[in-house]
Computed example of a mutant assay.
Amino acid sequence: MTKPIRILVPVNSQEAEALQLALGYAHKICEKVGQGVEDVILLVHTKHQLDHTSLSQFLGPRNVKALAKGPIALSGGGRLHAATMKSWRYPPRKSVVVVYYAEPKILDYVDGLNNIAGVVAVPDIPGGADDWVARWGAAVHGQAQQAPRPTLIDDAVFVRALETLSSVINLSKGLGHPRDKGMANEILSILRTKGHADQSGNIKSWAIRRGWRPEHASGLEALARKIWALKAKPNLSGIHDPEGRYQRWQAGT
């Protein structure tokens, strides 16, 4: 499966140039992907952002009214749709998504969608999409393309421990089963007790890139934050073979 093309447009969302650049990149992605990809989704949080903000001024009253009824033709070819997180779920055809007023919540939402050829993000505030850029190694307008980091967690033992968890649970359900949540709690408790640094700031992105759904990756992050927030290290007496498990993570077996 071809990975979506991801681009950040770090231009003030209150300037018309931001929308122009975003739509331009969306058009280029459609052309590059080919395969009949012609649909561009302009995604925002709420309907208010489509008809009562600077974005609506950039689109123009006529286009805003038309988009409320359905897609409109783009000047360079293709169709532009408008959608909100509440009104849109899964695109029937492979599409390019322009995420306007982007921030972590809406970008996580898009990361959980299928049938996406590309994503162009215009941040709500500077830095609002930095974690998303690091997660995927997204291209940044005006900057040289950087290769994505091989791993988002610079602790090989920590990564092997998380890989153990990912290999046995149902990634589509995350930690929904008490047994799986218990296993995650044990693994993270062992790592905390063995003196590993808090990686909760990177765990969500690591898990999403590993195939977890964003909402489940957030649950893993929350559990990690809870364990590293404990005043004392967790007691491992009730955990099966913590020393043996830890040694296997160290050895990579």
Results as ranks from 00 to 15, higher is better:
81 H>P: 09
74 L>R: 11
3 K>Q: 14
52 H>N: 14
108 D>H: 05
36 G>S: 07
63 N>H: 11
48 H>S: 12
144 A>G: 08
201 G>V: 08
125 I>Y: 10
189 S>Q: 03
163 E>D: 15
159 V>M: 04
244 G>M: 01
12 N>R: 01
134 A>M: 06
143 Q>D: 11
228 W>L: 04
168 V>T: 15
26 A>R: 01
249 W>C: 04
66 A>V: 08
109 Y>T: 12
59 L>T: 05
66 A>C: 06
33 V>Y: 06
223 L>A: 04
135 R>V: 04
14 Q>A: 13
124 D>Q: 02
171 L>T: 15
108 D>F: 00
183 M>I: 06
71 P>A: 13
153 I>H: 01
40 V>D: 12
102 A>H: 00
55 L>C: 06
59 L>E: 08
98 V>P: 08
188 L>I: 15
50 L>H: 15
188 L>N: 06
54 S>F: 14
49 Q>D: 13
133 V>D: 07
76 G>E: 15
169 I>H: 02
139 A>R: 09
138 A>W: 08
30 C>V: 07
128 G>R: 00
149 R>H: 12
17 E>H: 05
128 G>D: 13
26 A>N: 10
41 I>P: 11
130 D>N: 07
241 D>V: 02
163 E>A: 09
158 F>L: 00
199 Q>D: 05
92 P>D: 11
219 G>I: 11
172 S>Q: 14
5 I>R: 01
128 G>H: 03
87 S>A: 13
60 G>Q: 09
193 T>S: 12
51 D>A: 07
147 A>I: 02
197 A>K: 07
250 Q>H: 08
189 S>L: 04
121 A>E: 01
109 Y>N: 07
165 L>K: 01
20 Q>G: 06
119 V>F: 01
248 R>F: 06
104 P>I: 00
234 P>Q: 05
230 L>P: 11
84 T>I: 07
119 V>N: 01
5 I>H: 02
57 Q>M: 08
205 S>I: 02
43 L>W: 05
87 S>E: 14
174 G>I: 02
30 C>E: 13
156 A>F: 08
234 P>M: 04
160 R>I: 07
105 K>P: 02
76 G>F: 06
116 I>V: 15
53 T>L: 03
39 D>A: 11
4 P>F: 11
130 D>E: 13
184 A>M: 02
